[in-house]
Simulated scan of single mutants.
Amino acid sequence: MKNKRAIVMLGLAVLFGLAAVAVAWRYLLPPPPSSGKRVVVATVAVAQGKPLTADMLKLSDKIFEHPPEGSYFDTEKLLSRVVKDALAAGDPVTEAKLAARDAGLSSLIGKGNRAITVRVNDVIGVAGFALPGNYVDVIVSTQKDAPNGERSTELNVSKIVLERILVLAVAQDVGRDESKPRVVNAVTLEVTPAQAEHLDLARSVGTLSLALRNQLDNSDVHSDGATKRTLLQEPALIKPAVVVMPKAPARPTTRPVVLVKRNCVGVLNGVNVSQECF
């Protein structure tokens, strides 16, 4: 009985020993080579239009068994490429998120749209806060056409002519840093062909100003514009109505009565007296 128990204990000891050796062997052996790869990711948030630099890129810590389509595996191949779609820190850098090589600003223009540049100063350009990626309204200050050709301050008007226009670039910079305003003398806007015509006409007939919008504000503004009278809140002048009196009907002309001088004599007939003229 005692021998049987000893044999059982010995067998269990051998089994546990083999299991311990197997576990140790598994951890001591080098891991098998993985079929996955490390892809290039952004180390920081990269805004639309920014060229990539070495400090913006690194190989991912994670190994991708199935890397995203268009991924890169070498940071050197991405240097100076322009970002078309903004990248967040840790996002894989793929070909779909990059502008075509040597395409410049034209690669950022939406299909069917145009880029047009307008000259501004530090006030008109919202003190430098109209940065690439922001949206602005375009205001023109001009004079209305008078019906009889006369010019008067009463005809001055300021009106929003274009709404929610995307700023593509300021001066020659297509990058964006919302914390650092830049005072520039030119702003490039993305517009439709029809809006380009309106903008070109507006800058030729008056003075342009930009109004910075909230990025999430999609509402349309229907404004009649501001004039000197609405600015000062003066009541509109009411012109006196001109009452046109109907013409009196023409009176028929009457010929003057011409009295003809006649000879008359009295006639006595019995007791009756009469007068006969001839």
Rank of each mutant, 00 (worst) to 15 (best):
D122Q: 13
E95M: 05
T75S: 09
L87F: 15
D85Q: 12
T94S: 04
S107K: 10
A89E: 05
L105M: 00
T75C: 10
T94F: 09
A115N: 03
V83L: 03
N121A: 06
V120I: 13
R81V: 06
V120N: 11
G104R: 05
S107M: 01
A86F: 15
L87Y: 13
G90D: 01
P92G: 00
D122M: 00
G110V: 05
A96P: 10
V83Y: 13
P92A: 01
L108K: 09
A100I: 08
I116E: 09
R101M: 02
G104F: 05
A115G: 02
R101H: 10
I109L: 01
G90I: 10
E76L: 14
L79N: 13
A96Q: 04
L98P: 15
A103N: 09
L108A: 05
A100T: 10
T117S: 07
T94R: 11
D122W: 10
A99G: 03
S107E: 03
E95G: 06
D122N: 10
A99D: 07
L78M: 12
A88E: 08
K111L: 01
A99Y: 07
E95W: 06
A103K: 13
D122I: 03
S107Q: 12
K111Y: 06
S107I: 06
L98V: 02
L79M: 14
L98A: 08
V93K: 10
T94C: 08
R114I: 03
R101I: 02
K97G: 08
N113M: 08
L105E: 00
A88T: 11
D102C: 06
D122S: 08
R81F: 09
A89P: 13
S106K: 09
V83A: 09
G110K: 14
R81Y: 14
D122L: 04
D102R: 12
T75I: 06
G104L: 00
A115T: 00
L87V: 02
T75N: 07
G110I: 06
R114G: 04
I109A: 00
A88R: 14
N121S: 02
K97S: 01
V93W: 10
D91S: 04
L98G: 08
L98K: 15
D91F: 06
G104I: 03
R81W: 11
G112Q: 05
I109E: 01
D91K: 08
P92K: 04
D91A: 02
K84T: 03
S107R: 09
E76Q: 15
V82M: 08
G104K: 05
K84V: 00
D91I: 01
A99E: 00
L78D: 12
L108I: 08
V118G: 10
N113A: 02
V83R: 13
E76G: 15
E76K: 15
L78P: 14
V120A: 08
K111D: 01
P92W: 00
I116F: 13
R101E: 01
D122F: 11
R101Q: 03
G104T: 02
